[in-house]
Design a protein around this nucleic acid. Sequence first.
DNA 1: TCCGCCTAGGTTTTT
DNA 2: CCTAGGCGGA
Length: 764
Amino acid sequence: MISELLQGLNPKQQEAVQAVKGPVLVLAGPGSGKTRVLTQRIAYLIEEEGVDPFNILAVTFTNKAAQEMKDRLEALLGPGRATALTVGTFHSVCSRFLRREIKHLGRSPDFTIYDSDDQLRLVKRVLRDLNLDEKQNLPRTIQNKISKAKNEMLDAAKFAQSKQNFAEQITASCYERYQELLLESNALDFDDLLMTTVQIFRQFPEVLAAYQQRYTYLLVDEYQDTNRVQYLLVKNLAAQGQNVFVVGDNDQSVYSFRGADVRNILQFERDYPTAQVILLEQNYRSTQAILDVAQAVIKGGKKQKYLKSLWTEKRVGVKVSLQEGYDPDDEARLVVTEIERLRRVGSYQLNDFALIYRTNAQSRALEEAFLARGLRYQIIGGIRFYERKEIKDVLAYLRLLHNPFDRVSLERVLATPGRGIGSQTEAELQRWATAMGVPIYQSLLALANLEQGETPLGLQVPFNTRARKALLSFLKSIEDLRAISTTFDLVGLIDALLEQLKLQEILRKEYGQDEGEERWANILELRNVAGEFTCLPREQQLATFLAEVALVSDTDSLKDQAEAVTCITLHQAKGLEYPVVFLIGLEEGLLPHSRSLDNQDTIEEERRLFYVGATRAKERLYLLYTFRRSFYGQWITSTPSRFLADIPPDLINRPAQPKKLVQPPENTLVPRNGPRLVAPLSNQGPSEPRRLNSPISSKGSVLSSGPTERIFLPGQRVRHQRFGEGVVVSSKLVEDDEEVTVDFLFKGQKRMLANLAKLEQLEP
DNA sequence: TCCGCCTAGGTTTTT
DNA sequence: CCTAGGCGGA
């Protein structure tokens, strides 16, 4: 009997799901159901091959993908069947692994995980410790270098060896001190989670052997986005059984900035000579019109032969639209207007729409347009929930309670709220702790003992009376909370903390009524999340909560059912799909991003980003760019993205702009909030070709010509100069125009060419 | 120590 | 444009 698990899969997919033991590489285009194949494969292994879920490790790209995989398995196999399965991101899997195994390095499992913000603070601390100038040694740059080194498995010593020039020696000494502070803080940063795991594997072969024995089946999604250390993790775990099943798409490799190396997937067969390679080329997501454009862009740059091509059985569908907005506000307005139109004439809901952009900053203009029209929207990313100041403040207390050596949290907590402990006192505390050779928190405890008359090391009692008082009262409040944490559950602890801090009042005072309430609401949301952990044994609640909170990303909490338009970056949109997609800001300097321009490889990565964005669309794809955009407060005339020039004109519609804008007179400032000097004129038929300054190419490019998109859909209200108002009955595209049948209020039905007749769109 | 004014510099993308 | 840090004054 053919397994039910194979039903609804095409032969290629079935082949992948049933692949025999041994290494398997599934090269799969966008929308090819690769994540589904991965999931079905796991179900198949358990159901048909009798594999114990305990022996399976599946690595996904986000926690959200992991959750979805678990849910799907539950649905396929029945409840409870797959609970022994290990699923998660590299980071979460390694984090769990280290809680168990870090003891081999003589470290406590109660380590704190430092996120990027914590990393940066720690680097700043390092620079101050080493008396280095923050101007000459930018903390961000140093943080990036350290992170990069860790992703390449270079520890501080190896880094110092490999870099000989003076500037890098400075970085090396920062790296060294940085690791010292991490160790002293009993903390691991994001990158350590992976690097330390591999180090343990190397140093303790018996530990590795145990995991190799356990995980006889290893599956990895988005393999093209693995970096060196992730590659080594996979390789180490797969070394014995070779049962490694990876899925990915080299055309969607967009994470080289965090060390991802597309060669990992391209050289899979070299790493695993017995590998089977399966190509999934059929696309189940997008229409042919969308796929054609996406393929044109991805192929545009390269001469090399492609590993795979894409095809679909879906209908050709609506042509992809390309449109210019005057500026980002106008661009946003065009999008919102189109969303409103599609909602009227089609059966779309708000969550069918996605606005995808290169940089988070672009979401600002969108936000304003949505607010102005009263459409619900959700912006993914930007300031992440767990990076909000008020949230981090509260988390800092919780982290300090769980791990008193956590240096970054201690410093944060000392400074907020103001309690009379400033940089002077802090520096002195630091000196004193160093003199005693203990971590800062212990030196505080020693200070308390000193107060009670003990003088352990015969050191002089430091600090003036005021500072000492402040420090001791601080210590007392922490110790009080610590006592509470040993009797109350997590929510009880948080309540006590909020009470002690008088946080609600502080927030209201600091940010005013409205924003104060908003931030307080965030705190309550955090408290809500904490509530989900109170079902655990009390001793585990805080640790589990903190580990979880450190590793979630924003897309993880993305709600599909939310009735709102989604605004999201290209990177975060990877793996998602929407019926209608607007790719905005398709301009030189933005996509490709200006920071990528000095290097051919990074420009090609930008091209892949375009490809990823375009292939998110199922039914309709809109490409937009602006005439001008402001950078650093300066208006710059935009140049349309070079990737647009790779699209054959006949694949694209350049709609007659329903709203035509005129350039403002020279040297006229357009006030940000005042009345716009550039008023949208009501439409008067086909617009004059907009002056495109520096078009990419004069012919063979979508930028120079193009027929019209179908904008007069049935139900659209229109006005004609002679016939007056009417409603569109039907329409179809013809050569260079759109043929519409209109039912006029007084003149009955007429058929005409929309642009030729200068037909005007009206609001409903 | 804290507050507020000022200026110089900065914008990719994320687990 | 915006914001984080530096600097002067209370």
